[in-house]
Write a protein that binds this DNA or RNA. Structure first.
Lengths: 166, 166
DNA sequence: CTGAATTTTCAGAGATTCTTGAAACAAATT
DNA sequence: AATTTGTTTCAAGAATCTCTGAAAATTCAG
């Protein structure tokens, strides 16, 4: 396999995974391309490489910057803007955790807390309350775990942590 | 808040979360409904409660059974089939991990391993190789961590594990 | 200020995914 | 075997999500 072929496979695969995880394919592909690029790229280069439109490129670059996964670089004497991705994969994971936690986990937790307060003495109320409380407790734990993970550094995860859980 | 209102909020919220995670809303809602039901329900009851069609109900029940999150129960003397959900939330999480790992993480790992073998001496090849290998290593670690988590039991996670990482 | 280069926005087109409901199928009952 | 009850399948339509490309906005040079 040559480099070009490898790049294509990687971009395709990363894009596919994005799709499975509720992130749109183009966004994941732009991210993949920038992660493996040796130098920052212009929107134009990205557009050509991935064969997507200018608009799509622009929108997904904006989204990636909002997620804190891609940065803009201005080169002096040049009009064009260059983009580059965070390459420290541990930081990438942390950014994604931070974002999804805020967007999804925290709103869910809020609802679970509200809903766990429900009282009643029917079998329905009983079963509801038990299940919701179990989910609520585990979700809170998961939330704490993710907080701890994000605070930790990469070596801790790949070293200490992994040894502990085995 | 009364029980009915609580149920509705929970089902809506769980369905919403499913959507964010690449699972369709109806499937997540059927799951939510069964998790909080005190007794197994028939397809008909689910259909009425969630106001979805028979076909939709049937297909999503099948999918939930394939994921190992819902079981079928036959009551003697009754024609109708009853469905109930796994209520141990830790088991639910494990089932989801097992399924998604197989469907998504493992294929990605395969591609990463293939692609990490790429050789070349251009800056492109260099950058590609470094990044892909970093991702590959972390993905393998994540895979191992998930294996360990699934083998562990609930108490270990909520007790020991959580203490360790703090 | 004018004009060229570049980026952003967004309405409509296109693609994908989800839902419906009717028909086929299955299983038990008469 | 015909009927009744219940379940599954699937084609067509609906809903949702994504992409395009042209127009508007922005930026900078002269």
């Amino acid at each position: 396999m040559d480099v070009q072929e490898g790049k294509e496979k990687f971009i395709e695969s990363w894009g596919k995974m994005g799709g499975d995880w509720g992130i749109n394919r183009a966004m994941a592909q732009v991210h993949a391309l920038l992660m493996i690029a040796p130098e920052p790229l212009t929107a134009d280069q990205i557009k050509d490489e991935l064969k997507i439109s200018t608009g799509n490129t622009s929108m997904n670059l904006r989204a990636l910057m909002d997620w804190g996964l891609v940065y803009k670089q201005l080169k002096s004497g040049e009009r064009k803007e260059y983009y580059y991705a965070e390459k420290d994969i541990w930081k990438v994971v942390c950014q994604i955790i931070i974002n999804r936690k805020k967007r999804e986990l925290e709103p869910l937790l809020k609802v679970l807390d509200e809903v766990a307060a429900v009282k009643g003495d029917s079998p329905d109320a009983e079963s509801f309350s038990t299940t919701v409380n179990d989910i609520r407790k585990l979700t809170h734990k998961a939330n704490q775990t993710l907080d701890a993970l994000v605070k930790a550094d990469s070596n801790w995860f790949t070293g200490t942590f992994l040894k502990m859980i085995r």
